[in-house]
Design a protein around this nucleic acid. Structure first.
Lengths: 137, 137
DNA sequence: CTCAATGCAAAGTTTTTGCACGGTT
DNA sequence: AACCGTGCAAAAACTTTGCATTGAG
């Protein structure tokens, strides 16, 4: 395989991903890193995001509407996607349940289940508020 | 809200979704329904797929690579996405675990968790075979 | 008759890719 | 020097949408 070389752009992307909890889209990452590297291109951001996901230093989270989201948090954890606003949240699940579920899932997937990318859909509290106020009219 | 009118195209889409276990993409649905309705357009397929998802008669499953997948199975169940080939599989999870996990997730999402769309990533057995033979060379 | 659904094509969004150049090793 | 990474722009992949027409109620 090709040898990985250092690049300031990739470093900046990694740093941003590791610090934010917002599970940004590729475009959000682009906008942020652009502040430090005004000439960076969206293509470079995509290439690095996919590269980081490939080597396990980031997680790509697919959402049903809008683009994919990325997460730089490396400890195993689940996610919840709000189907109303599209935002992604970390889910603090009792390790005991995560273990049990992963074990069951692995009966079918032979130990390959990636518990970073397990994912639920729901409606976040902010959207619940908005929706209930809409229901009133 | 607008009143729903019958259409043979939508009926055909629904029937296909309810019979297949392949979790097809919009394009696969299009190709299939095209056999019965040669003039059907991809736009119509998308419109109906989204409509069915909105009224809860189908589930839209986002995958990190390739297009979204659709499922017509209506009983609550989880899915596993193969990150190698992109295929989606049903996951028969002990209801007791599903219940426990949903309950925990719902502490954060206030009872809105949709247990049709909860989703894991892994590598399916077919891809495991292919990958291991690649590793040998 | 009314309005939802369709087919078609154009446009929108998101992501990938080819290529020449610059940066890291 | 070798070759990976970048910026740019074009292209690809996927999905939505406007509009005239057809079809259900």
């Amino acid at each position: 395989m090709a040898t990985l070389k250092y690049s300031r752009q990739r470093e900046s992307i990694k740093e941003y991903l590791s610090k934010t909890r917002s599970h940004p889209t590729a475009d959000s990452v682009y906008l942020h890193v652009k502040e430090e590297f005004p000439n960076i291109s969206l293509g470079t951001v995509y290439r690095n995001l996919n590269l980081l996901a490939d080597i396990g230093e980031a997680v790509k989270i697919a959402t049903p509407d809008g683009g994919d989201r990325f997460d730089g948090r490396t400890e195993p954890h689940y996610h919840v996607v709000c189907t109303s606003c599209g935002n992604v949240f970390d889910l603090e699940l009792d390790p005991q349940y995560m273990e049990a579920v992963n074990q069951t899932a692995n009966q079918y997937f032979d130990g390959t289940i990636d518990n970073h990318t397990s994912l639920f859909y729901g409606t976040c509290s902010e959207c619940l508020k908005k929706n209930s106020s809409k229901d009133l009219k």
